[in-house]
Design a binder for these strands. Structure first.
Lengths: 146, 146
DNA sequence: CTACAGCCTGTAGTAACTACGGGTACAAGG
DNA sequence: CCTTGTACCCGTAGTTACTACAGGCTGTAG
């Protein structure tokens, strides 16, 4: 049980090689998504076992975790690519990274503002509704009015 | 000028027939989108002119306006379809419509909450940044940490 | 008569995956 | 030794809601 070979783990929780399934389970990223990331160049093509199965190491694990966190923070794959390019280049500055983060923060705030306007409108038209059984509905009226 | 034939308008701003371009301009819905709505059954197939051009009337205009407003309020096309089905059936009750609206309102509120959590996290990690030119970046650290 | 706009159809591209179909590989149980 | 089951392989299609061509016809104004 502490040498889960199918996962590619070897000793004491220390990971030396991971199958795609093992990587998927450790990161919580769908197996198909890992392959997808490889196809579009977000993840590098890992070495293969004799049978052609993908073998991942700690670096892959770190990178995929990075991608997953970034996605959870709402960065698009394009933005993630930009962040990775900075990291891969190795000569990124903190300022460059913060620029991307702040731009994304502005996008998020804009979206929140949009949704809040929507929320108000939806609440308003819904409030007009007397919830009768008659087919006369203020919501529909609002949507249909010229 | 007050009989814009290419738009299919006839007299005094009163619309009797609209080309797809005229409908598009009046509603602000992209011409291709109008055709798309026809393909997927959101808009009915209108009659055609001798040359095969689509001819729309006031009912089409009203329906497309309805669809556009609903979309602007963030209803998905599936939800718009449900609203239209109620209207088309003719026997909808105000309660049914309000149910859809309130469900959508809940979705919007959930999304706002999600984005606000994101906003806080992004602001926090960005604030940690000293904006130096050194390649050591707290944002990247956060994204990479185990 | 010749531009040029407007319309026609159908298909492909966008974002970011997810799901599926059909096939191979390998370990454990009988 | 064989079977069963799981994990993996690849490539393609489906999802949402459009948008953007490509290639061709029509219709009108100058």
């Amino acid at each position: 049980m502490d040498s889960d070979v199918t996962d590619g783990e070897v000793t004491g929780g220390e990971v030396t090689a991971l199958s795609i399934g093992g990587l998927s389970r450790r990161t919580g990223v769908h197996l198909e998504t890992v392959r997808y990331y490889e196809n579009i160049g977000i993840m590098p093509a890992p070495p293969r076992s004799a049978a052609g199965h993908r073998r991942y190491d700690r670096e892959h694990l770190k990178r995929l975790t990075f991608v997953k966190r970034s996605r959870e923070l709402g960065f698009t794959l394009k933005e993630v690519r930009a962040l990775l390019a900075l990291v891969d280049g190795g000569d990124y500055t903190c300022g460059e990274v913060q620029d991307l983060t702040l731009k994304h923060l502005r996008d998020v705030r804009d979206k929140i503002a949009d949704l809040q306007r929507l929320e108000v409108t939806l609440a308003e038209i819904s409030d007009k509704c007397a919830r009768g059984t008659i087919p006369d509905c203020p919501v529909i009226e609002t949507l249909f009015r010229d």
